[in-house]
């Protein structure tokens, strides 16, 4: 199979397979998780239900001062790479075109030089959090194989996309095909791994905030 045929496969059949698994997995897990429902709470609320859930979604996006002092790399690196990832994925024009092609939605993109810079910063932040994970004994102890695999699966699309745009290592066509393939692998793994937090984080925060509010620790 030549490079262009490989690219056409990942743009066609490969994408169809990956999106199928992704959509199937996401719907399955979301409906199953949220469909389970919570056990009826028989205790009287300590105070009237407020907006604790929504406040928690917002508040937990920012580190607490003490925590920040203890683990600055985790927080800053984590925040930078998540925001960077969001910018690269959703504001690079070819990505927007793909989303438009699949879902019909589109919005203005950013110039490729800005995307390029954000990609480098994002990769640097990801490498930093990985090094921190390896160097800090506690973090290393808590890490499993799955943590390293998911890190690599997230890092690969960034790296291959950047290499493709920069024309490094391999011919553009082949690198672009590898980039798309790496995203497809990520899509397939996402619903069945800890990467599913992309869909559940805010729901979990809301739930925790709401329960805490119910118990009297409103925020």
């Amino acid at each position: 199979m030549n490079d262009l045929a490989f690219l056409t496969w990942v743009r066609g059949t490969g994408l169809d397979i990956a999106l199928s698994v992704f959509v199937f997995g996401v719907l399955w897990r979301l409906i199953e998780i949220y469909g389970l429902g919570a056990k009826k709470d028989l205790a009287e609320p300590r105070r009237a239900d407020g907006a604790s859930g929504w406040h928690t979604i917002w508040r937990r996006s920012f580190p607490q001062k003490e925590a920040m002092k203890k683990a600055p790399v985790t927080y800053i690196g984590g925040i930078v790479f998540h925001i960077g990832l969001g910018i690269v994925v959703f504001f690079f024009v070819p990505h927007i075109l793909l989303i438009k092609g699949v879902f019909g939605l589109s919005w203005p993109g950013l110039p490729s030089q800005i995307i390029d810079l954000v990609t480098v910063v994002t990769m640097a932040a990801m490498i930093l959090v990985l090094v921190d994970r390896l160097v800090k004994p506690v973090k290393r102890f808590l890490s499993t194989k799955a943590d390293y695999i998911t890190w690599a699966l997230t890092f690969m699309p960034l790296l291959t996309g950047w290499l493709a745009v920069q024309h490094l290592l391999l011919p553009y066509t082949l690198m672009l095909a590898i980039h798309i393939l790496s995203v497809e692998i990520l899509l397939i793994v996402l619903p069945f791994s800890k990467l599913f937090h992309a869909f559940t984080t805010f729901g979990s925060r809301w739930y925790n905030g709401e329960v805490n509010g119910h118990k009297g620790v409103a925020v």
């Binding site: 056409t8 169809d16 719907l27 409906i31």
Partner: peptide, 21 residues
Amino acid sequence: SMPANPLSMAKKAAVAGVVIS
């Protein structure tokens, strides 16, 4: 950057996802 072929399988997968879940 657009899909090379129509994503026919993905639509079926979405329906299957809803039904099975």
